[in-house]
Design a protein around this nucleic acid. Structure first.
Lengths: 157, 157
DNA sequence: AATGAAACTGTCGGGTT
DNA sequence: AACCCGACAGTTTCATT
């Protein structure tokens, strides 16, 4: 599943992580190749699935989502998984859903407008589903760091 | 802190969340205004801090980070916070750090290459710090959903 | 917010190492 | 196979209405 990346690919990825809308011309100038060559490499990284797409980074508070929370969910039995995952995909407030080890089955990261919105999400969207044994909610008081950047490098740790 | 967004702003943000490198010309065509008008609106959204930037979405596995984990950290006393937060900012493997309610103080989201890398992060980078009372690590087995998209809308829930 | 002109960028061909 | 160069279509940007 892992892809071999050379030094230039790594530089390109790190630039695109910081400036997702950088022009191929500027990117090429930064890494010392021509614009078509840079565009070619980016296209190949996209084709190989390394780059899945591009997105704008929004300030959650400024778009009215001042409340972030993590919700740990425990399912009663595996047969209720499908219904639960459907709801996860359907709910826009749920940004992430991970199947995890530990006391609980799933860990959700959610963005809400206010506590009422969170209450609705927990009570009406999640706990109303069949087979939800329990949920444990952890409220985010403040976010110290939040980046989409992965530490991309060629091969070393 | 919240910003007033009209219908066009919301449409623009939702397009930019899905296609961060869309051209102003195409964006403008989609929402029914001229290209300069679209560019103006985007620029204003950037100036108001709603759009903080743009980034490429990478496949973590394909860049060699097959292991995702959440680490809950409890500090002994508040005076150790500064040292801890420095380390958080310095470590590229730590993608997120949230100050949270509950049994623990901080919740980290980390991306590692393999278990050895995670072991190093926990033992050498975190537990070696003064004032770290304990850490609880939750391994991600699989990720069901992971999106940067916020449910942007004008004002309703 | 729309229009039109100028500068720039992306892309496609061909050619090179 | 990867890259560079040159050229044209498309895009961004600015001034103007």
């Amino acid at each position: 599943m892992q892809i071999s990346l050379d030094t230039l690919d790594v530089k390109i990825l790190n630039y695109l992580l910081q400036q997702g809308r950088i022009t191929w011309a500027e990117l090429a100038a930064q890494i010392g190749i021509s614009a078509p060559a840079a565009a070619d490499r980016v296209r190949k990284l996209e084709d190989r699935g390394v780059i899945q797409g591009y997105t704008a980074c929004l300030d959650a508070e400024r778009v009215g989502h001042s409340l972030t929370a993590f919700i740990a969910v425990t399912l009663e039995r595996p047969e209720h998984r499908a219904t639960f995952l459907e709801r996860v995909h359907a709910s826009a407030a749920i940004q992430e859903c991970h199947h995890v080890t530990g006391d609980d089955d799933y860990l959700l990261k959610v963005r809400c407008r206010h506590t009422r919105h969170l209450e609705h999400l927990i009570s009406d969207s999640l706990k109303s589903l069949p087979g939800i044994l329990r949920t444990r909610t952890t409220i985010v008081l403040s976010t110290v760091k939040e980046t989409a950047a992965l530490p991309v490098s060629t091969s070393s740790s």
